[in-house]
């Protein structure tokens, strides 16, 4: 707990530094939150809080506990232990009230494939008991927002994966929620579809909607999130803004060197002196350093001849590798 509080203070200090208001309006607060399925602990006592208007990310590999956390926050799954408050209410007691003000984009689209795009939106709006006319107006606005105006009468089954995903997001917005939870919004989409989706999420943020996103894509987390936590095996292993995390857990630059498959480990031993840290992956060696070009030159100076090499900026991928010793997407 103490560790978590320290982390919290750390974060608010940096927020003030970036000119954000110091008064906190916390939309989601979790204290030692747990989710157990029988003996299996999916979420193991995590602490985090999400502020109004920010994009908050959960980054981690499959099975890290992200989805279980999202399901608890969306009041779909009962809390097994600890405390959780969503929009100032407790999910186990006030599920329907919370869900009235919350939009969920689940990992599976859960769309009715046999109905049209427009009908899917319309019916979802009616689950909230919104008046018919109001829902119809919102449907047209959301079709435009989701770039689906021309597909309104199409059966959902005929849509591409990216379109279905955008429709699911539009559906989550029909009740004009204050908080939107997106569980892996872009998994399985091609790059173009992902960028279009990211753009829509930016717009939502600009409108003041609080977004909570899970992802196992580093670039997504870096692009979208104001703050994020890194989850692994049910626990939060690090928290902060993408920049803070990279500064804390990695170096400014990374030099990647590829040797033959069996030669990476041997080369890494000789490279140990050249960088702040060296990681050996099955297919390459990573040198963590503030000057990647310099490290690369030094490596060549040692007489090493990598088959390929590149210098890049550190990313959250490196943070994850450092924290868990594993790469994120296997």
């Amino acid at each position: 707990m103490q560790h978590a509080e320290a982390r919290q203070e750390d974060l608010s200090a940096s927020r003030e530094g970036r000119g954000r208001p110091a008064t906190r309006d916390e939309v989601v607060v979790a204290r030692h939150l747990e989710k157990r399925f029988g003996d299996f602990v999916a979420v193991d006592g995590i602490d985090f809080s999400v502020e109004r208007g920010e994009v908050f990310g959960f980054l981690g590999p499959n099975g890290a506990g992200k989805t279980s956390t999202m399901r608890m926050v969306s009041c779909l799954s009962p809390v097994s232990g600890g405390e959780l408050s969503v929009l100032g209410m407790e999910p186990n007691a006030h599920g329907p009230e919370i869900r009235r003000r919350l939009g969920l984009v689940p990992q599976d689209d859960t769309l009715d494939l046999e109905l049209s795009v427009r009908d899917n939106l319309y019916l979802y709006g009616r689950y909230f008991d919104l008046p018919r006319r109001e829902v119809r107006q919102r449907v047209e606005r959301l079709l435009e927002f989701a770039h689906l105006s021309e597909k309104g009468d199409e059966e959902v089954d005929n849509l591409s994966g990216g379109m279905k995903r955008r429709l699911t997001i539009a559906r989550a917005l029909i009740s004009e929620p204050e908080l939107v939870i997106l569980d892996e919004p872009t998994t399985g989409l091609d790059p173009q579809a992902r960028h279009l989706l990211w753009d829509r999420l930016y717009r939502l943020k600009q409108e003041g909607v609080t977004l909570v996103i899970t992802t196992h894509y580093m670039d997504e987390a870096e692009q979208l999130c104001d703050r994020l936590v890194v989850m692994d095996k049910g626990k939060i292993v690090a928290a902060g803004s993408p920049r803070q995390l990279i500064d804390t857990y990695s170096t400014r630059e990374v030099a990647e060197l590829r040797f033959g498959v069996d030669e990476n480990a041997a080369a890494a031993e000789r490279l140990a002196e050249l960088a702040a840290r060296v990681e050996v992956l099955p297919d390459r060696v990573l040198l963590y350093t503030d000057d990647g070009d310099e490290a690369l030159r030094a490596a060549l100076g040692l007489g090493l001849r990598p088959e390929a090499s590149l210098v890049r900026r550190s990313s959250l991928e490196d943070v994850f590798l450092r924290l868990t010793g594993r790469s994120l997407v296997d």
Partner: peptide
């Protein structure tokens, strides 16, 4: 199959 019940339960429906 369609998981439409899951969609329903993400709304105020109990």
């Amino acid at each position: 199959w369609l998981k439409t019940y899951h969609a329903l339960l993400a709304t105020p429906v109990r």
